[in-house]
């Protein structure tokens, strides 16, 4: 049976349904996220498992990988980001169009993990803002799915004006992204 997502709260009567634009847009965005997999190491293999038939990320409307940053909504960073890779990651983030979300999968991407070494970036949040962190080394596919669902929650509830606010602009400026 195909189950269509639930309509947001609103007024309903014969022939009409009224809700706020925020909620309608949030619902649409939530269920059609195009992820950009930025898979560098071990977590990338678990992501392959998440994409596979067994765990099937497609159930949540995210089966369409977008390998072009311009057309992606969700940047999924999976695996260790070395300092050599940092500028590349940042460039990919800068190329993405707003609204954009970032999911940091695994201990390495979130904090450097066990690799507290001279060559590893100690968490991608030093160079780009992150919305959801998924712990684990590597996380199980269920955890990655949970992270995507958490992102969907954020997407659904985000106000349409958030990205124009001073607060958001200041946050980006603090990362040096204009």
């Amino acid at each position: 049976m195909v189950e269509i997502t639930k309509a947001p709260a609103g007024f309903e009567g014969p022939g009409f349904f009224a809700t706020s634009l925020d909620k309608a847009v949030g619902m649409a965005r939530k269920n059609s996220l195009w992820p950009l997999p930025f898979a560098t190491s071990c977590c990338g293999i678990e992501f392959m498992a998440t994409m596979g038939a067994h765990y099937d990320l497609a159930r949540f409307g995210s089966e369409r990988m977008s390998f072009s940053p311009r057309q992606a909504d969700l940047l999924m960073v999976m695996g260790t980001i070395a300092k050599k890779m940092g500028p590349v990651l940042r460039q990919v983030y800068e190329q993405m169009a707003e609204p954009r979300w970032v999911l940091s999968v695994g201990a390495c991407a979130s904090s450097g993990g066990i690799f507290d070494t001279y060559s590893v970036l100690q968490g991608i949040d030093r160079i780009i803002p992150v919305d959801v962190y998924v712990p684990g080394c590597p996380p199980r596919p269920e955890q990655i799915l949970d992270g995507v669902l958490k992102i969907q929650e954020l997407v659904q509830n985000e106000s349409l004006r958030r990205r124009d606010s001073e607060e958001y602009k200041n946050m980006l400026a603090s990362y040096g992204i204009s």
Binding site: D116, T117, Y118, V120
Partner: peptide, 17 residues
């Protein structure tokens, strides 16, 4: 990178942490 990482005097940890 400055220095030679596997020489014994090179520090292992990330100095910016």
């Amino acid at each position: 990178l400055e220095g030679w990482p596997l020489r014994k005097e090179f520090p292992l940890e990330d100095p910016f942490r």
